[in-house]
Simulated scan of single mutants.
Amino acid sequence: MTVLLLAGIVFTLILLTKQRDIASVGIVRNITHKLKSRSLSTNYWQTGIMLFAANTALFALAFVILFFLPYGAIAGLMMCIPLSLFTWVIFSEVWRGSRKDKVKMAFVGNSFFLFFLGWIFWYYATLEPAYPGDDLFMAWIGVIIASIFTIGAMSVSMFVMLRK
């Protein structure tokens, strides 16, 4: 599992260094060209809500892959990380408004991760042992790992969205 985590981190770093190249790919240019003429490109509430929905859908896809497919962690790393970066680059490229509104849009869209982080902490705070003497140490480790992944995903998303 550690090897998969390190591979995912390295893969993410490689994709982050190539995000300018991703933004110039033909399919990204075609999608952004079609979306720039809509109010989606200047209204930070609409774009933020769409980004929130995209983050929710990406999380649901990752959840389904991880828990319902054999070798889901490997497939998740190979598919969900580039798909997330691709989606965030598209939202970043579509934006035509001011920098201040782009920051607002990014915060509205990435509030999904804050809600998820709140749910993680609420779940752990209300967790009860299954039987007397049950140790909740492994649940605590799960909370720490989920928090790290959530904060990491939110940080990468903000970095991609707010780049110049």
Score class of each variant (00 low, 15 high):
residue 63 F to G: 02
residue 134 D to A: 03
residue 113 F to W: 14
residue 12 T to H: 08
residue 36 K to N: 07
residue 80 C to G: 05
residue 11 F to Q: 09
residue 28 V to C: 02
residue 38 R to V: 00
residue 108 V to E: 08
residue 59 F to A: 13
residue 55 N to M: 01
residue 90 I to M: 11
residue 22 I to N: 02
residue 59 F to G: 01
residue 147 S to C: 07
residue 5 L to R: 06
residue 54 A to W: 03
residue 5 L to P: 03
residue 95 W to G: 06
residue 41 S to P: 10
residue 130 A to L: 01
residue 2 T to N: 07
residue 96 R to Q: 15
residue 106 A to C: 08
residue 9 I to F: 10
residue 158 M to T: 13
residue 133 G to D: 04
residue 102 K to M: 13
residue 53 A to S: 08
residue 86 F to L: 15
residue 81 I to W: 03
residue 146 A to L: 09
residue 59 F to Y: 13
residue 87 T to F: 06
residue 6 L to F: 12
residue 39 S to W: 09
residue 109 G to L: 12
residue 157 S to K: 00
residue 150 T to L: 00
residue 17 T to L: 04
residue 99 R to G: 06
residue 7 A to P: 03
residue 159 F to K: 10
residue 40 L to N: 02
residue 97 G to W: 08
residue 37 S to P: 00
residue 5 L to N: 08
residue 55 N to V: 11
residue 25 V to M: 15
residue 35 L to G: 05
residue 59 F to W: 15
residue 18 K to V: 10
residue 104 K to H: 11
residue 26 G to W: 06
residue 132 P to E: 08
residue 32 T to W: 06
residue 27 I to P: 02
residue 164 K to E: 14
residue 134 D to N: 01
residue 97 G to Y: 05
residue 78 M to Y: 11
residue 116 F to S: 06
residue 100 K to M: 11
residue 119 W to E: 05
residue 91 F to G: 01
residue 72 G to Q: 05
residue 136 L to V: 01
residue 121 F to E: 08
residue 79 M to R: 04
residue 6 L to M: 13
residue 12 T to M: 11
residue 143 V to W: 01
residue 32 T to V: 09
